[in-house]
Write a protein that binds this DNA or RNA. Structure first.
Lengths: 232, 232
DNA sequence: GAGTGGTCTAGACCACTCA
DNA sequence: GAGTGGTCTAGACCACTCC
């Protein structure tokens, strides 16, 4: 070919534009790779890469023999990273500190038991802790650990190592359920996080499972300024 | 080479295994593409594809000249669905209502322009609206639409159809960036959402792209009781 | 400057699936 | 059977970044 080579990004973007502008209608069949390669003056492999990226991002669907179609209603979802608090803080260039507030084996409150699919009142490990960034309160953590699935936790004091890090190292999980919402700080949360009582706090509740077994349920409370950002 | 060709999946899986088994230690440098290609008896392009997939899934990090490293602590993720407000409300068995608050073509404030990667002060469409569930305020929406990428929006009044639904039908996107946080209701938000001024509100900001082009930036404000739950 | 990853080409064969 | 996407090769040149 004459002139500069055509990049797969340019081809991808042009095809995305056609989909966006409805030049290629929702549900419609688009030209085959070879035809597109001729049109764009590129190798078929290059067009293929562009198409694969569009397919991966959910804009088109491809089937051998049947060809490539514009997906009528692309599926929409956002992904959020599940980081260690320590990493989250250190990634901001701040110094991390950890403080254990309490640790006890207690009977499960009804609400907690229900979510973990365990029996109300059965005894599990309850840990409360504070995570600080450059000395300022960053996250208050209230956690229940299913010692049935993670027996080693009963022998750990959590005075130096946070439950978060201990669990990551010792108890892998396969699924996580997350719930996020805003709330007004309770008296205790306000005191611990150094905000006004009733001030907005950002709460993340995370329940992790190893295949059907609950591992841990944690409620993480942040000052309202905290942002949770999807991966880019 | 003799024998069957080696697939990029086989190479990818074998490399993932080495990382999982610590044969390639966390943080360690792994061999360069050419060396791997020789080892696996494959073309460099094939090894490259395997490596790119591992990089995309977060297991390794690649830099020109510096080489490829095993990421010390792979990050897990949670996925959240991105629903239509109407569907979200109707799925709760409630009746949906929509009210347009304002619609104008205005210059972009600096903060908005920066996030959309557009020029400050360039004119785009600004829409504010309210979504109600069983007559009660559910979500206050403050939205900018990039009429450069979605020209049809300039001809739409948004008096009956919400920008959310209109955009879903007319302007597909391939990626979405989400930011969620808690905030204190402003005077106006409090009035619109029927909560006390300064009460906790749950804010979701969503920026969507069609490949590299910004489509719309929307700030959605909910009463603090609102929950956002990951897909199970 | 040099080493490493990033991308493109031209050609080939394979694998799936529709008719 | 035949059309379309999926993948692999061998070679080349480019682009970034470390030294």
């Amino acid at each position: 070919m004459s002139g500069r080579r055509v990049s797969f990004r340019a081809i991808r973007d042009e095809m995305a534009r056609r989909i966006g502008q409805r030049e290629w209608a929702p549900g419609a069949l688009i030209p085959a790779e070879e035809a597109l390669a001729r049109e764009f003056g590129a190798a078929r492999a290059t067009v293929n890469r562009a198409l694969q990226e569009l397919a991966r991002s959910g804009l088109i669907e491809r089937k051998r023999k049947a060809g490539t179609r514009v997906v009528p209603h692309p599926v929409r979802e956002a992904r959020f990273a599940i980081p260690l608090v320590r990493q989250e803080i250190e990634a901001r260039g701040q110094t991390y500190h950890y403080r254990l507030l309490s640790r006890a084996e207690e009977g499960l409150p009804e609400a907690v038991a229900a979510r973990m699919k365990l029996k109300t009142g059965s005894v599990r490990l309850h840990v409360r802790a504070l995570h600080l960034a450059d000395g300022a309160p960053y996250q208050y953590e209230d956690r229940w650990i299913n010692t049935g699935a993670v027996p080693g936790a009963r022998a750990e004091s959590f005075e130096v190592v946070s439950p978060n890090e201990w669990l990551v190292a010792k108890a892998p999980f396969s699924e996580a359920d997350l719930t996020v919402f805003a709330d007004a700080a309770t008296e205790e949360e306000a005191r611990l996080l150094n905000v006004a009582s009733g001030a907005p706090v950002f709460v993340v509740e995370r329940l992790t499972w190893l295949v059907e077994k609950p591992i841990t349920l944690v409620r993480m409370v942040h000052p309202g300024t905290h942002r949770m950002v999807s991966r880019l």
